[in-house]
């Protein structure tokens, strides 16, 4: 009886760890500074006006989305090689985070595209690839929720996490070639990075960093939550044996 996992693990794990507190404070500060810089410090773009300020949100959100899926890919590989549940917990937490940040990035992009391009969405290589990435990981979460919990789910979703990630460059290549061989829509490209004033670039970098720290904070929080869920499930099944 004394050997039960829930009894043998120290009570300390319930309290928020130092890393959580540090990332919480760091992301609050960084996000505040980032948004100040994005909304006030950075100069107004001559052509796009206020809407250009969405850029400081749109790109970092998509960056974090992509980063989150890289983490899913790596931890899926980690799970398959080590069969350690922690990899699976990281993978599922990161997939959820990725969907949230990607949704944010896509929606922000659409809000930006409407006044600037005159359309909500463009199926250009970047737009399509982002959407496919989003779809892949929404289906990843659906698979997890439908199959339930257990090692089979972990294996299946690890496979999907790997295949889905490998698929992304293929989608990008295919859509780019598709556009070069078919008439491309006449759209002003958003490659304004080259001639960006230094203040804008600085604000952008700070936002990028802030979002990344924020992702780290959410990940730590989410992984802790999953560990608690995991222990509740273990405890439940142990109790069921009595």
């Amino acid at each position: 009886m004394k050997d039960l996992t829930i009894n043998s693990t120290p009570q300390k794990q319930y309290r928020p760890g130092t890393s959580l507190v540090i990332t919480a404070i760091a992301s609050t500060v960084a996000l505040s500074v980032g948004f100040y810089m994005a909304l006030i410090y950075a100069p107004e773009e001559a052509l796009q006006g206020g809407a250009q300020r969405i850029f400081y949100l749109h790109v970092p959100a998509l960056w974090v989305g992509a980063l989150a899926f890289l983490v899913v890919f790596i931890s899926s590989l980690g799970y398959l090689f080590s069969r350690n549940t922690i990899w699976d917990i990281i993978a599922r937490s990161s997939a959820e985070m990725g969907v949230i940040f990607l949704t944010l990035g896509i929606v922000a992009g659409a809000i930006w595209a409407r006044p600037i391009w005159g359309i909500w969405y463009s199926f250009d290589p970047r737009g399509t690839t982002t959407l496919v990435l989003w779809l892949t990981y929404v289906s990843y979460i659906m698979l997890r929720s439908i199959v339930g919990s257990g090692p089979r789910t972990s294996r299946l979703s690890a496979f999907l996490g790997i295949v889905g990630f490998i698929n992304v460059p293929l989608v990008f290549m295919a859509t780019r070639w598709w556009r070069t061989l078919h008439p491309a829509p006449t759209i002003v490209t958003s490659d304004s990075e080259s001639g960006m004033p230094q203040e804008m670039f600085l604000a952008f970098l700070v936002c990028l960093g802030a979002f990344t720290i924020f992702y780290a904070f959410l990940m730590i929080y989410r992984v802790q939550l999953e560990q608690i869920v995991e222990r509740v499930q273990t405890a439940r099944s142990t109790l069921g044996l009595f």
Binding site: L135, S139, M142, V163, N167, W178
Partner: peptide, 14 residues
């Protein structure tokens, strides 16, 4: 189809 179609997209385009 929900799982497979995103992965099939490059194939379909090609």
């Amino acid at each position: 189809p929900v799982l497979l179609l995103p992965v099939l997209l490059p194939l379909v385009l090609a």
